[in-house]
Amino acid sequence: MIIRTPKRLHLGLIDPTGSLGRRFGSLGVALEGGYEVKVLPAERLEVKAKGEDIETIKKALERMNSTFGTGTGYLIEVRKAIPRHVGLGSTTQLSLAVGTAIAKLNNLNVSVERLAEVLGRGKNSGAGIYAFAHGGFVLDGGVKEGVPPLILREEFPGEWAFLLVIPEVKPGLDEEEEKPIMSGNFGDVNVAMEISHRILLGLLPALKERNVRAFGEHLSVIQRLVGRHFAEFQGGEFREDVKLILDWLSKKTYGAGQSSWGPTVYGLILKAEFQRLSAELNDHLKEHGIMAKVELGLPRNAGAEIVSENAFLERLIRSVAQ
């Protein structure tokens, strides 16, 4: 069995204060280019992966076995991966890929919310969970008990895209590093109210009306507001080491921001503008001596794809024959 996941662009947390009885509330967009993971039954556990992916896979296996008795005899091979700790949701996507495959192989009918709970996902945000399940633009209703509920899922316009920049700087915080922050008391309820106002009467109508300029303007403001919640932990509304890139993106794209703890930053563009803007951006990066990877972030309006090994081989053979 082969699972292909999205990667997740995190567009912000709404209310860390929990002023209405729910903490956080998150919004995000699914993008193409996530994990491709092969999972097969085997006599013993064999993991073909690199770095922290190995530990994530083993933890997912242990949690699935502890809850459902699914055993540990599997061959798990990571064929394509999301970079770790850059703000693109690698841990959630890989955990859910492994959990989903094991559930399917054992004929378990388990909801994505239940899988996420078993795998320890969704403690602060549901954006990655629902990007995995449904693709598109997703908004969750905040954490109260268990996994936050999905409030809205909307198709993301196919002609829109993101100019993604992953600079070669300090990685974003991992789950252990962020734990004391996310479990503490922080944030500003007035900022949360303004973010909510912008989402309901700005961002979402612009998405429905396919108004890229208005969507980008509201997204930029929301990102700066979200940054105020986290300013004491990252040195300002955004990380200092991505400021030069964000300044450029803010001037050249429809809207810009930082995904999660970064260092990935992004600008909202039309897909047709990517070649021109990426060339200009690379010149800007070179001029300032900034080492970074520039990518086209294509929206993905479908959740994780699950195919059998035979179906995958048949498709590969057909593509080669054509």
Rank of each mutant, 00 (worst) to 15 (best):
I195E: 02
N185L: 11
W160E: 03
L152S: 07
L201V: 07
L150P: 08
G187L: 07
L204E: 05
G202F: 06
E175V: 00
R153C: 02
E209F: 11
G184E: 10
F156Q: 02
F156T: 01
H197C: 01
P171R: 14
E155W: 04
L163Y: 12
E177D: 04
V221T: 11
E178R: 04
D174G: 09
W160L: 01
E159A: 10
P171A: 13
I199Q: 03
H218T: 14
V189I: 08
A192H: 03
L152K: 11
D174H: 13
M193W: 12
S220R: 13
M193I: 04
F162Q: 07
L163H: 15
I181M: 01
P148D: 15
D188T: 01
L163G: 12
L152I: 05
E177S: 03
G187V: 03
S196M: 01
R153F: 07
I151Q: 08
I199F: 09
I199L: 10
L164H: 06
V165Q: 08
G202H: 03
I151R: 13
F215E: 07
D188Y: 11
I222Q: 11
G172R: 10
V191F: 03
K208G: 08
A161I: 04
G158W: 07
P167V: 00
H197D: 06
M193G: 14
E217L: 09
L164P: 05
A161R: 11
V165R: 08
G184W: 09
I195D: 01
L203I: 04
R198Q: 06
I222N: 14
A192Q: 03
I181Q: 01
F215P: 04
H197V: 01
A161M: 08
P171I: 07
G202T: 07
I181G: 03
A214E: 14
P180I: 00
R153S: 09
E209V: 08
L164V: 09
Q223V: 04
H197W: 03
P205W: 02
E176W: 09
M193A: 10
L225M: 12
V221L: 15
L164D: 03
E175D: 14
V165P: 00
G184H: 09
P180K: 00
L219F: 15
N190P: 00
N211R: 15
D188E: 03
L207S: 02
F215S: 05
D188N: 06
N190A: 09
E209H: 13
G216T: 05
V226N: 15
K179F: 00
P148M: 13
V221G: 03
P157L: 02
R210Q: 14
E176G: 05
P180L: 00
A214Q: 12
I151D: 01
M193D: 09
V189P: 04
E154V: 07
D174A: 10
V191I: 13
V189D: 08
F186Q: 08
P149D: 11
L200M: 15
P157Y: 01
L173M: 15
R213M: 05
V212H: 09
E154D: 05
P148R: 14
E217A: 12
L163S: 10
L225G: 05
F156L: 02
L225E: 04
M182A: 08
H218C: 12
V191W: 04
R213W: 07
L201E: 10
P148W: 15
H197E: 02
V189W: 10
L200T: 11
M193K: 14
M193V: 06
N211L: 06
Q223A: 11
V226T: 12
N211I: 06
A192M: 08
M182Y: 14
L203E: 12
P180A: 00
